[in-house]
Computed example of a mutant assay.
Amino acid sequence: MDLAPYSNNQINRVFRDYPPVNGYVDVWADSEEAIYYCYGSMLDNATSDPTTILPQVPSDDVTFIPAAALAAGLEGAFFETDIDLNNVGSTDLTYELLWLPRGEDNSDPVSSETFSLAAGAGVRYANVLDEVFGLDPDMVGALAIEASGMDLLAMSRTYNLPSAKVAGTFGQELPGIPADRMIPTGVKKRIIFMNENDDVRSNVGCISGAATEVAVQIELYDSDGVKLETKYMMLPPYSNRQINGIFQDYAPVNGYVDVRTYTPDALIYCYGSVLDNVTSDPTTVLPQ
């Protein structure tokens, strides 16, 4: 892809010559002093619902997927989660998946069997809570992945199966978060693009990577920067929670949240999810 100064381009259906296929792309630039950014977009062929896939670099042997579901939601939604793992290293590695139920003390979590993944290979788990853990509805929580090395990438897509409303799916991505890239004690992150009105609703979820109970402070602001409220989310060890309709008491409103923890030695990660009230199509909003 040749890009003129400050330009952009997109290759649609980049794998069209190789269907059916699951795969990945590596991107780099040979031009001196180049500065660029690339992204992936996977679209459902029935709904054209796009799922954003951001570029990643591995950095830890423990990775958290902040949310996973096999459960009914609001407005007739039913959510499932697929995950994709990829070994970017030059040697084989092994890994286990850990199931972290929402709101529970996960100090001793249920683990999968040990899997292996060849160098340069990837694997997709469709409806991971059923395929790997044999869970039945209604289950919500998060996942952790413990690998034998630091070369494992993870990405998830949680999607709504909208029953008789339309064919196809509506989904959102949540990347795997290496443990060393979680939010440490005292660091504030902002989640923007929050909305609550007749058309959309907004949720905020958080996961803890600490072995002790963690208190997460969530400050709500409207688009003018007026503070509306401070909420607190208590997370047991290695647990996760989600506040649905977090701005519902202030609708209609556009706003944002600031998240942080003052619990000593804590590691957290929080995300936003904005859902269409008709299709329950979720849009991920990552902290910045």
Rank of each mutant, 00 (worst) to 15 (best):
M1E: 11
L3H: 08
A4T: 11
A4K: 13
A4Q: 11
N9G: 11
Q10F: 07
N12R: 14
R13W: 07
V14N: 02
F15N: 14
F15K: 05
P19Y: 14
N22G: 07
G23C: 09
W28Y: 15
Y39A: 12
Y39H: 09
M42H: 08
L43D: 08
D49H: 12
T51A: 05
T52H: 02
L54R: 13
D60P: 00
D61G: 01
V62L: 08
F64Y: 15
I65A: 05
P66R: 05
A69P: 00
L70Y: 15
L74T: 11
F79L: 07
F79N: 02
T81Q: 01
T81I: 03
D84P: 00
N87C: 05
V88K: 01
D92M: 12
L93S: 06
Y95Q: 07
Y95E: 05
L97V: 06
L100M: 14
G103M: 03
E104C: 02
E104M: 11
N106F: 03
D108N: 15
S111Q: 12
E113D: 15
E113L: 09
T114S: 07
F115H: 07
F115Q: 05
A119C: 04
G120P: 09
G122L: 11
Y125P: 00
N127S: 14
V128T: 08
V132C: 02
L135D: 09
D136P: 01
D136G: 06
M139T: 15
M139Y: 14
G141C: 07
L143G: 03
S148P: 03
M150R: 14
L152K: 10
L152A: 07
A154H: 00
A154T: 06
S156D: 00
Y159F: 15
N160Q: 06
L161D: 09
L161R: 13
S163F: 09
K165E: 09
A167G: 12
G171E: 06
P175F: 04
A179S: 12
P184H: 08
G186F: 00
K189N: 09
R190I: 15
R190M: 10
I192M: 04
N197H: 03
N197L: 00
D198S: 13
D199L: 10
V200L: 06
S202Y: 01
V204C: 01
G205V: 06
C206E: 07
C206P: 09
S208A: 11
G209A: 04
G209R: 04
G209W: 02
A211R: 08
E213G: 04
A215V: 15
A215W: 02
Q217H: 14
Q217R: 14
I218G: 01
L220M: 10
Y221S: 11
D222P: 03
D224H: 05
D224M: 08
K227P: 10
M234A: 11
M234L: 13
L235C: 08
L235Y: 08
L235S: 08
P237R: 06
S239V: 07
I243C: 00
I243G: 01
N244G: 13
G245N: 15
G245I: 08
Q248L: 04
D249I: 06
D249T: 10
D249L: 10
P252R: 06
N254Q: 12
G255V: 05
Y256K: 02
V257N: 01
T261Q: 00
T263H: 01
T263K: 00
L267N: 13
Y271S: 11
Y271W: 15
G272F: 02
V278T: 15
T279A: 06
T279V: 05
S280F: 06
D281Q: 11
P282W: 04
V285A: 03
P287Q: 13
